[in-house]
């Protein structure tokens, strides 16, 4: 087993994975910049549909980078990508359906 270990140490190339590390830091800066922009928008854009829409789009962009790059899903097989994405699409529908339901409850009580 000690031999196995040595084998690897000698094979280690300091440049190995350099490109991957570059991609990781790039993703970090993208996430940081989007989060900072969210703060700017939180205090400059008036509250309304536009603001909420911007926040939702930014959140999805952040989720795309975290799942795609950090969790490596972008580089997996297509079957795996769809196995994860399809259930999430149904969840998005559930969210929409129950927001409408919440609005109907509001109308029934206060409308």
């Amino acid at each position: 087993m000690a031999e196995v270990h040595h084998h690897h140490v000698h094979n280690q190339d300091p440049e190995a994975g350099a490109e991957q590390r570059k991609a990781i830091w790039k993703t970090f800066w993208i996430l940081l910049i989007i989060t900072s922009l969210e703060f700017v928008i939180a205090f400059t854009v008036p509250h309304g549909v536009l603001k909420v829409s911007i926040f939702i789009v930014m959140t999805i962009v952040k989720a795309f980078y975290i799942v795609g790059e950090f969790m490596h899903l972008k580089h997996e097989t297509k079957t795996l990508i769809w196995s994860i994405l399809v259930p999430v699409i149904f969840v998005a529908w559930l969210i929409l359906a129950l927001l409408l339901e919440g609005n109907a409850i509001f109308e029934a009580i206060f409308g």
């Binding site: 969840v91 559930l94 969210i95 927001l99 339901e101 919440g102 609005n103 409850i105 509001f106 206060f110």
Partner: peptide, 15 residues
């Protein structure tokens, strides 16, 4: 999602 969906429903049903 269930927790966030419940949150959204409650929020939309309050003024």
């Amino acid at each position: 999602s269930a927790l966030l969906v419940a949150y959204g429903t409650a929020r939309f049903s309050f003024p």
